[in-house]
Design a binder for these strands. Structure first.
Lengths: 369, 369
RNA sequence: AGACACCUGCUUAG
DNA sequence: CTAAGCAGGTGTCT
C-alpha cells in the first residue's frame, strides 16, 4: 500500500516534530471553531484553523484532528511525532471505540446510533502511521494546546486570528511571496486568507449518510473554505449531515432551523493533500508509549524569550501583527491598547506610529534567602 | 404494625397532596443515597433522605419508595395522591411483576432468583390504598423529582442536605447535636432531629429478611437512622465506625457479603448522624507502580537541564505551569509554595506576580537550609 | 431484543 | 454554581 513518502517534491521540508489540535464551541451547540498546529524541526510553526456556524464541541474537536491529519499526510514526520489533544472523545473514539462501531454497525453502547459518523469515518481513513495521540489536560499548562484553544476560540467567535505560515512561509514548488507580516490583516481579510476558488471537493467519497436521527432539527449548515495559496482542494471539504439532537422527547435542538452559516478554514500557507491510509494510534506491539511531552514546548518558549531579548536589545520596533505573533496573543486582544504594558519580563512601549518596542524589565529581584 | 406509641401528637395534620421519591448511587454499585418528599395541603413540605455505604441504584430507588410509603402510612392523604418516581423498575415491579413472582416462587423470567426480594416484600406490605405510582422522566423538568434526586445525590456523596421538616416545623435549626437514634423505616432505626428520647429498643422487625439475593453484588448492609416527628422507636445504637474514605481510584467490589455497612436516614432537620460505611477490609494498599524506563530518560533529562540553564541565564520568569513542565512535577504540588525552593542545581525564586525565576546555585554541594 | 434508572470519563460553554 | 456534547459501563426487569 501506499508507501508514504513519494517522490518528495518539496525541497527540503523539515520534518514535523510536534502537533496539536483543539476545538471550541461557543454555546454548545452553537457557533464553533477549531485550531491545529504543526511544529517543524527548524523551529517554525504552521497553524490551521476554521469555523462552523452551528455545531457542537465534539464535532469541532474531531474536525481539528481531521484537518491536522490531512495536513500531516504528505509532510515528512519525525518518527516520534505525536498529536496532543485534550479530547478523550477523540482519542478513545479513534483508538478503542471505532473498531467496535464498525463491527457492530455503528451502534452506541446504549443502543443509539453513533453520532458524528461522517467525521469518524473520515478520520479513520486519514490515519497516519506511526503518529500517536497523547492526551493533555484541558486548560492547564500545555502551550501548544493553549495555542490551539486560542485559535479555536477566536474562530468560534467569528474572529480571525493570525496564523503562522510554517517553514519558509512558502512552498518550494511554487515560488510564492512570503507574506506573513506586514500588511495588517486584521481588519478585514486575512493575512493568509485570500480565497481563490472555491472549487468543489475533488473526492466526495464520504457523505455516506449517517442520517437517521431526529426528524427534528435539520442539519446545521457548515462549510469550509480553505485558503492558502492557490490550490485545489484545500483543507477540509465540507462534511455534512447530522446535527446533534438525540433521542428523547423533544428536549433539545440545535437551532430552530436553518440559518446555515458559513464556516471557514484558514491555514497559514498552503495545504492540500489527500490521502492514504495507515494507522494512527496504538497498534499492537506498542513499542512507543507516549512519553515525554515536555521538552519541545519549553524549547520553543525559550526560543521566543531569547528572541524577545534580542529584539529588545536592538531597540527594534514591531508592528502589532508581529508583536501578536511574538507574544502569542490574538491580535484582537492587543489592538486597543494604547500605553505601555507588560509581557512576561518585558515592558512593551508604544512608539507612536503604530509600532511597539520591547524593553527588558529588571523587575525587582532581590536577595533571596 | 402500627402502633403509634405515644399519644398522637398530630393535631390537625393537613393531608398529603403530592409525593415523590428517588434514589442515587455513586458508582453503581457504590455508596448510595435516597430522597423522598411529601407535599402537604397547607403548602409545607416534609423531606426524607438517607444513605447506604454500599448499594445499587435500584436498591436505593426501592428504599426511597419504602420510606415514603411508611411515612405515608399514618398521615391523612388527599384522595388523588400519587407518588412520582422515575424508576420503571419500581413501578413495574410493584404493579406487574410482583404478583407473578409471588405466584411462581420469586423466579425471574429467565430463571434466576429475583433480586432485592427483601425490599420487594416490604414494599408489598407497605402499600397504601388509593395511592398510585406515576412515572416521570428522569431528569428533565419535574421539580419534585429533581428535588428528590438532589437529596439522594447529596446523601450518596456523604453530604447532608438540609431537609424541610414538614408541617409544624419542628425544630428549625439546631445545628449539630447528634442524637441519631431511633426508628427507621427500613432497616431499623430512625431518629429525629428533635426527638430526644427514643428509648426502647424497637424490634428490628424485618431486618432479617434480606436473605439471599444478591447475585452480583449487592450485599449491602444498611442501617438507618431517622428522625421524625411521628414515630418513636429507638434503639439500635446507631453509630458505627465510619470511615469514609471512598475508594479513590480503585474499583472496589462490593464484597460478596458479610461486612455490613451502615447507612443513615434522616428526616427533617437532620442531626448529626453517622453516615457511613465502614467497611474496611484489609488495607490493600495499592502500591504505586513505579514505571520508569531508564535509558532514554537520561537523554531528555540533559535537554531539560540545559534548557533550565539558559532560562536561568536569561533571567526569564516562568509561570507555574511552565515551571511544572520543566521540573516535571505536578502543578498541584507547586501551587502552594510561596518562597524560594530548590530544584536540582537551581534555586527557584518567586517573582511576586505568580511567576518564578531560576537561579543557578553555585554551591550545590553543601547542604543548604 | 426492549425499557427505565444509576453512574464514570473527557470536553465545551454560561 | 449550572447545562450540553459524547462515549462506555452497571442495576434490573420483560
Amino acid at each position: 500500500m501506499a508507501e508514504a513518502p513519494d517522490a518528495d517534491p518539496r525541497g527540503a521540508m523539515p520534518p514535523v516534530v510536534a502537533a496539536a489540535c483543539d476545538g471550541a464551541c461557543s454555546g454548545n451547540p452553537g457557533p464553533g471553531g477549531w485550531g491545529a498546529l504543526l511544529r517543524f524541526a527548524d523551529g517554525s510553526v504552521r497553524e490551521l484553523g476554521g469555523a462552523d456556524g452551528a455545531t457542537t464541541n465534539n464535532r469541532m474537536e474531531l474536525t481539528a484532528a481531521l484537518a491536522l491529519l490531512e495536513a500531516l499526510q504528505d509532510l515528512p514526520r519525525d518518527p516520534s511525532l505525536s498529536i496532543r489533544t485534550d479530547s478523550r472523545y477523540l482519542i478513545d473514539g479513534l483508538q478503542k471505540w471505532l473498531p467496535g462501531w464498525k463491527r457492530k454497525g455503528w451502534r452506541t453502547a446504549s443502543g443509539g446510533t453513533v453520532l458524528n459518523r461522517d467525521l469518524w469515518e473520515r478520520l479513520d481513513r486519514s490515519r497516519v502511521a506511526g503518529v500517536s495521540l497523547v492526551h493533555v489536560r484541558g486548560h492547564s499548562g500545555d502551550p501548544d494546546n493553549d495555542r490551539c484553544d486560542a485559535i479555536a476560540v477566536a474562530f468560534s467567535r467569528g474572529q480571525r486570528p493570525m496564523l503562522s505560515p510554517g517553514p519558509g512561509g512558502s512552498n518550494p514548488s511554487r515560488p510564492a511571496r512570503a507574506r506573513t507580516t506586514a500588511a495588517s490583516p486584521l481588519s478585514g481579510e486575512g493575512a493568509t486568507a485570500r480565497v481563490p476558488a472555491g472549487r468543489a471537493a475533488a473526492a466526495p467519497a464520504d457523505s455516506a449518510a449517517s442520517g437517521a436521527n431526529r426528524g427534528a432539527g435539520g442539519a446545521a449548515g457548515r462549510a469550509s473554505v480553505a485558503a492558502g495559496r492557490a490550490d485545489s482542494g484545500g483543507g477540509v471539504p465540507a462534511a455534512n449531515a447530522e446535527s446533534a439532537a438525540r433521542g428523547g422527547s423533544g428536549r433539545e435542538r440545535v437551532s430552530g432551523e436553518g440559518a446555515p452559516r458559513q464556516g471557514a478554514a484558514l491555514e497559514g500557507v498552503a495545504g492540500e493533500g489527500v490521502a492514504g491510509e495507515g494507522v494512527v494510534g496504538e497498534g499492537v506491539a506498542p513499542a512507543a508509549p507516549p512519553l515525554d511531552p515536555a521538552p519541545p514546548a519549553l524549547q520553543r518558549l525559550l526560543g521566543r524569550l531569547e528572541l524577545a531579548d534580542r529584539l529588545a536589545a536592538g531597540g527594534h520596533g514591531l508592528s502589532l501583527a508581529e508583536l501578536a505573533q511574538l507574544v502569542e496573543m490574538p491580535l484582537r486582544s492587543l489592538e486597543n491598547r494604547s500605553d505601555s504594558w507588560r509581557w512576561r519580563d518585558w515592558l512593551v512601549h508604544p512608539l507612536g506610529d503604530g509600532r511597539w518596542r520591547l524593553e527588558r524589565d529588571a523587575q525587582g529581584l532581590q536577595a533571596p534567602e
